[in-house]
Design a binder for these strands. Structure first.
Lengths: 181, 181
DNA sequence: CCTTTTGTACTGACTGGTCAGTCCAAGAGA
DNA sequence: TCTCTTGGACTGACCAGTCAGTACAAAAGG
C-alpha cells in the first residue's frame, strides 16, 4: 500500500504528531478522503502500520533464527535485524521514537512477544544447551540486544549509510562474543 | 526550574509535538506567558532542556569512568548510565524518542561528542591496553553499548520498576563480558 | 521620609493559523 | 449496480505566540 510507505517515511522524518494526513495523502498520490475511507482515522492508520511492520520484523527475525548452535543462531538474528532495518530503514526510526508511547500499548506488547520473543527463545536455547549461564536474565538480555541493534542501525542510516553491513555486524558480534581479544 | 521538570515529564509521556505549552505551563504552575518570557519559543525551551540534560548525563558518565582496568571502567560507566536514568527517568524516554530527529542536530552532536565520547574513550583505552581487539570499531561499539543501556533502562522503568538495579547491571555486564559461561 | 521612575518578572485573554475529520458531487472499474 | 476513489470546500477544535497590563522591588530625586 502506497499510503503505508508514505506514512512511515513522513513519520520517521517528523514524528507522528507533526505528520499531517494531508502530507501523507499527497506523498502517496491519493486523495485525503481515500486515507479516511480506508483507515478511518489517523490513529487507526498508524496502528495498522505498526502492526503490519512489527509482523514483518518478527517474521524476518524468526526466519533468521537458525544455526548449528544457539549462539550462532543469535548472531544470525542480529544480522537479520540489521538487514531488516537496512531494507525498511525508516521503520527503525519510527519504532525507536514511538515504541514507548503509552498510546500504542498493544503494538508494544506485540513487539515484545513476537520480535523480542525470537531473541528470548534463542537465548533460552543457549542457556538450556549450556552455551551461556543457565541463570541469565533472558528477557533483559533480549531487550538489550534488540535495543543495541536498533540504535546502531539508526545511527548507521543517519551517519554512515554506505559502510558495509558486514562490518557493523562484526563489531556487534564481537561485543557479544566477549570483549577479551 | 519548574518549567524544565514539567516539560520533560510531559514530553516523555507524549512526545514533543503532542505536548502543548499550555500543558507545560499548567503543570509547572505558571502562566503560559511566563514560558515564552523565559524561553522565547517552544523549540528554544526544548533545545535548552536537551542541552542541559545532555550535559548532566555526560558529566555523570565521565565521573563514572574510573577503574583499575579500562574494562572495569566500562562496567562502571554502564552502571553510571543506569543510575542516571534511574534518577532522571523521563529523560531517557525523551532521548530515545527525539535523539534522531534532524531538528535537533546540535543536541545530537553534543550527545555524540560528550556522552558517547566517554564510552569511546574507555574503549580506546581498553584497545590500547590490549584488553579488547586493537581494531575494534570503537565508535560503533560505543553507540551499541549506549543504546543497549538506554533501551534496557526505558524498559525497566516501564515494566519492572522495582527490580534491583544491580541485577540489571549484572545482566548487561555479563553480556559484554562474553556469553560463554 | 515620601513619591516618582525604572526594570524585571509574570499574567491571561486574544489572534491567526493549522489540521483532523466531514461531506458531497462526480467518475472509474468490475 | 455496487464499491472505491477523487478533489476540494468546509468546520470546529486546538495551539503557538503576542501583547497590554499588573505587581513589586529597587533606585532616584527632592
Amino acid at each position: 500500500m502506497k499510503v503505508f510507505a508514505a506514512a512511515i517515511e513522513l513519520i520517521a522524518e517528523q514524528g507522528y504528531s507533526a505528520t499531517t494526513v494531508d502530507a501523507i495523502a499527497e506523498r502517496a498520490g491519493v486523495a485525503k478522503g481515500t486515507v479516511f475511507y480506508n483507515f478511518g482515522s489517523k490513529e487507526a492508520l498508524f496502528g495498522a502500520l505498526l502492526e503490519h511492520s512489527i509482523g514483518m520484523l518478527a517474521d524476518a527475525l524468526a526466519e533468521a533464527a537458525v544455526g548449528e548452535t544457539a549462539l550462532e543462531a543469535l548472531d544470525s538474528v542480529v544480522l537479520g535485524q540489521l538487514r531488516f532495518f537496512e531494507e525498511y530503514g525508516p521503520f527503525a526510526r519510527v519504532l525507536l521514537s514511538e515504541m514507548w508511547r503509552t498510546a500504542w500499548q498493544e503494538a508494544v506488547a506485540q513487539l515484545r512477544t513476537r520480535a523480542l520473543g525470537v531473541y528470548a527463545d534463542v537465548l533460552r536455547r543457549a542457556a538450556a544447551a549450556g552455551e551461556v549461564r543457565a541463570d541469565l536474565d533472558v528477557e533483559t538480555a533480549a531487550t538489550a540486544v534488540f535495543g543495541m541493534v536498533l540504535t546502531v542501525s539508526t545511527e548507521r542510516r543517519a551517519l554512515h549509510p554506505d559502510r558495509p553491513l558486514a562490518q557493523t555486524h562484526a563489531t556487534l558480534v564481537e561485543l557479544l562474543h566477549g570483549r577479551i581479544r
